[in-house]
């Protein structure tokens, strides 16, 4: 009986080991260590993922198209509206710009109107331009009810969300792996 017990223990151990090999590596370490640096007026402030999750959030529809026409989505996203982020940075004025840096070295810039969701180009499913759509740019940390995977730009991605579904936005503003935001 001792042998059988031993084999059962070994089996259980192997099953845990092998099933761990079959499972995606958890994002938790990366996400626990995440720091977003906000740079403004000579100050720097770091926010963790929890800090972001505790700020007011917006949930909405996301759908983007890349520069070569590949569509990603539709998806449901949740994140902190940029209008909330700039409050932490002591506010902005009409000549302000936000520089968004991805940890991969990518940079994108939004101006005052864009931070407030204006002047983005939007399309319907047939890629016909739609005018005057309400866009909410957010620092998205949740996609389809889960943390954003690294492949999708997590822990935090700049996203353009809408209340209506089926609204396609240009992909240039969807910066992956946001690590730093500068106020200029």
């Amino acid at each position: 009986m001792r042998h059988i017990s031993f084999l059962i223990v070994v089996s259980l151990f192997l099953s845990v080991l092998l099933s761990a090999g079959c499972t995606d590596i958890s994002n938790s370490d990366r996400y626990n260590d995440y720091n977003l640096t906000l740079s403004y007026d000579g100050n720097e402030k770091n926010l963790t993922l929890s800090d972001l999750e505790n700020l007011p959030s917006f949930a909405g529809n996301g759908y983007l198209i890349s520069t070569v026409g590949i569509r990603y989505g539709p998806l449901m996203g949740r994140g902190v509206p940029l209008t909330e982020v700039v409050k932490i940075m002591n506010g902005i004025n009409e000549s302000s710009r936000l520089y968004f840096y991805g940890s991969d070295g990518y940079l994108w810039v939004l101006d005052y109107d864009q931070i407030h969701g204006k002047e983005f180009i939007t399309f319907d499913e047939n890629l016909t331009e739609l005018k005057d759509q309400n866009i909410t740019p957010v620092l998205m940390y949740e996609q389809d009810g889960k943390q954003i995977t690294e492949e999708d730009g997590g822990p935090v991605r700049l996203a353009l969300l809408t209340e209506k579904n089926g609204i396609i936005t240009e992909g240039s503003g969807w910066v992956k792996w946001i690590s730093r935001i500068e106020l200029h």
Binding site: T67, V68, G69, I121, L127, E170, S172
Partner: peptide
């Protein structure tokens, strides 16, 4: 009128 990519 400007678009992200020339394909559009």
């Amino acid at each position: 009128t400007m678009r992200d990519g020339s394909i559009f």
